[in-house]
Design a protein around this nucleic acid. Sequence first.
DNA 1: ATTTGCATTAACAAAGTTGTTAAACAATAT
DNA 2: ATATTGTTTAACAACTTTGTTAATGCAAAT
Lengths: 207, 207
Amino acid sequence: MGAQRNTEQRIMAAAEKLFLEKGYILSTTTLIAKEAGVTHAMLHYYFRTKEQIFIKVLNKNLEELISSLRPVMVYQRPVWETLKEGIEMLFDFLNTHRQLAGLIYDVISYNPQLLEAYIQGLGGLKNKMFERHREMLEDEIRSGRINPISMEQIVYDIVTMNMAVFMSMTAMKNMIGFSSEKREEFIARQKSEIVSKIHYRLYGKLY
Amino acid sequence: MGAQRNTEQRIMAAAEKLFLEKGYILSTTTLIAKEAGVTHAMLHYYFRTKEQIFIKVLNKNLEELISSLRPVMVYQRPVWETLKEGIEMLFDFLNTHRQLAGLIYDVISYNPQLLEAYIQGLGGLKNKMFERHREMLEDEIRSGRINPISMEQIVYDIVTMNMAVFMSMTAMKNMIGFSSEKREEFIARQKSEIVSKIHYRLYGKLY
DNA sequence: ATTTGCATTAACAAAGTTGTTAAACAATAT
DNA sequence: ATATTGTTTAACAACTTTGTTAATGCAAAT
């Protein structure tokens, strides 16, 4: 072996930082390498292509997300308990990964081909993770305790509302006239806002 | 004069289409020219730089937005009337310019230097357009009819909520598993959702 | 019909992008 | 010590990007 002092990890860390900061396109392999303190040939040596390294970075982040969500989803508890904790978990995760929502949006919008592999895999995950919860939800709806709504719609609403909070934050950070206190105040308020909004949609009254 | 058959406008239209579709970076001058059916030298001849043409496209769109908003803002009517119509106007505008929110977000996030000129100008506009409404709002708050909140926060909430609706739409269009009926249904619901949410924030009860 | 002046093109240039490769290098096993 | 193996670099190649420019084309004014 040569003089490697965890070059691979250094490149990963640099790539993650830049992708989150500048998006996919503006994070050039040369820039990533520079940030990691190596030649850009190293990046290709370890990861073959820019696409590959991006996939690895995204994978790492999404696996963290799934790990956070699993403890909430794995138990069969009352629908609202699971939902509330799921929303809060997602919110907290995005709050500690504030640029991730923006990056995912960027890629979905302008480089969706990078996500093709994920979209395939998503079908399987969706079924494994959500099937029992979907059944419970449908029971609640049949018995009239919850307003009619599809599982997909709920998931969609939660995901978009959560992402919107942190994407607008990233955007605002780059504009003037918004103090960081107001930002944090806004964020704090949003978490319970989302919970309330979903509750209101399901039960017809505020939580 | 040479053989010009509104080349300038054709380039503008092509640029607008591509910027909205692919964002700023992926819309190369060569691609825009190709879309317009001319050499990319023409683009530089008429607009000097890519940055310039982008500014013109953005200007055009923002001027349309201001024009839509002016009739709502210019009269001195009760606070809630102005607010409700303002929200609905912005929503309708974004609904007929569905990719604009995404483009603005893209540029704010990854090429904010393009917006520097606007950020300067924004200060003046803000004062001219909002000053009287701010006074009315503050009167309402002092008299206890409206919960304390700053003008900036209201504008910010309205803008981010509206943008979020259409950005999530653009994103979803590029993913699978979401029918266009559900999309339209979702959009229709969002307009009154935003109105309600702002009303609730100001008056403590649903609209 | 010829000059004038904008419009248009093709070719070029400089810089930057992703990716490859041959050669040099360093650490370990033999 | 040396052969082996994986690591690192510098140089290069092919392509794309933005922008310029010299030459050409075209239409109207004189």
